[in-house]
Nucleic acid binder design. Sequence first.
RNA 1: GGUUCGGUAGCUCAGCUGGAUAGAGCGUCAUCCUUCUAAGAUGAGGGCCAUUGGUUCGAAUCCAAUCCGAAUCACCA
Length: 589
Amino acid sequence: MQLIQNLKQATANAIQAIYQVQIKSEQVLVNATKPEIEGDYTIVLFAFVKQLGKSPDELGNALGEAVKNSMPGTITDFNIVKGFLNFTISDQFWLDYIQSADTNQLITPTSNPRKIMVEYSSPNTNKPLHLGHLRNNFLGWSIAEILKLQGNEVVKTCIVNDRGIHICKSMIAWQLFANGATPETTGQKGDHFVGDYYVKYNDAYKAEVEQLIASGLSKEEAEKEAPIQKAAQAMLLKWEQGDAETIDLWKRMNTWVYAGFDVTYKKIGSDFFKTYYESNTYLLGKDLVDQGLAKKVFYQKEDSSVWIDLTSDGLDEKIVRRKDGTSVYITQDIGLAELKQKEFNTDASIYVVGDEQNYHFKVLKLICQKLQLPAADGIYHLSYGMVELPTGKMKSREGTVVDADDLVDGMVQIAKEKTESLGKVDDFSPAQLEKLFDTIGLGALKFFLLRVDPKKKMIFNPEESIDFHGFTGPFIQYTHARIKSILRKTGTAVHSIGTNLLPLEKALAMQLANFSAEVNEAAEALDPSKLAIYAFNLAKLFNSFYAELSIANAESEDKKNLRIQLGILTAATLKQAMHALGIEVPEQM
RNA sequence: GGUUCGGUAGCUCAGCUGGAUAGAGCGUCAUCCUUCUAAGAUGAGGGCCAUUGGUUCGAAUCCAAUCCGAAUCACCA
């Protein structure tokens, strides 16, 4: 659907022809005309009034006439109101569009497809996924789907933070308190099982610190001297030395966690083409430090630690190698960026990571650029805001973390209760029902987390749970199911669709025609919320249409055909838009 | 203190590449199921778009300052 683009181009051409002034088509602003004014699309004349030195009316008349004549059969009329040039599009244009639209090709693919990596999820192996991870996973998945929809090749990756002191804490606690218990013996999901020992570690640590303070140590000393903390540090050292027993335990506990993650990922629909483990990548980037030194990008201090000075870029000095020769977080990320580039040769790499790491990624990109790594310019940090509770941030210590599994199960349960109370799916089999509850519950949750601009922090109120009415996933799923229900009765064979359009029919066609452009916008901005909003508006519009006009009992055969076709297109568009959000739409609900 | 991001209806959010009377949803009130799925539709009510100044035909949108909130500025990851 190129209509808007064509209008811009025609306007630019007209200005060129009449006034010999070169205007880029992108400079022409085309809006949907206000409902109470006659017309379908509006061009704002003010932008050119001054530049061309003509009055809005004079300019409007000249442009209106020229554009109208350049698009015969498409534009039937124009008018000028207070500096706005309004064009009326012919019914025939929309009828042609409705008739020829192909549900298998709702999107015009991008002319320059790229290979793009999307890295998301990044779990820690010491605790289960929580609400924040869900936002990350849904965003990553959706971004990947949107880019694919546009015609790009997407490589989904995940970096697992499977090493470090926090893992050792869980391990120590397990050794101390578990008595050999395992997820199998307790029947607990592996990630929750390990997460519990992380909590137990913190409890024990806190108790030890308090005890030490009571025995006369200062708070600082106590925190340093707590035996369990020392044990964890010792264990990390052993791990790094490759101590067989430690590595064994580490592997064993990680296996439990991964088994748990797999269940969750499967449930919420996350997958990765390639998973990187920090235990394999944490030594990367060391050779790049030497290269950087040779290139004089980095410099060495007296204690032989290596730094980069970013003060001229408005940032600080940053260490890239410790004096003991070990690398730091940023170093391994540089190394990993290069590794990924070598393995996949992508045009761009999108990191879905929380906004608390904005500074880190700014530095990462800058350093990669200074090192002239091929990956550098393609690095893009998709920074998303935290999910907060009405009471403030989630804090594991205060037990206010919203667990991902619990939340998903809760949503599915609500979907079940709601669906059963409505009693519209009595003919479903138990397996179908289960699938439906999952679809609706997850749909509600995903939509809720994706409908907000990713970069903004959002508030989630677990008390109120998530609504199934209004601007929600189930509302759109319901609209889809409703259309499908009608189509099952009317059939989908369409012949003649008549020669005129009612306002609601036209509005629906216009909205449908926008889909491709909306996908492009969402892809460009890496913002699924744009698609969520689009899908909601389309569903809402269809529901108004549905309430006003009958499809099965339309006033004529032509009208029936036309509305069936509009129903087919709306259902297909909703399905595809939701699919790009990672949300399935049921045939019946 | 520096940097970055945010402040729009009671609540949660759109709108921000300047354009016509600032929009949704939830909540509140009212109306609509013997006819295609009421998880729906229609209507009412609700706003000094944080504040002040500037830019201009026109500012929620751009600029500056101020106030409030958040993140970050680790030899943690």
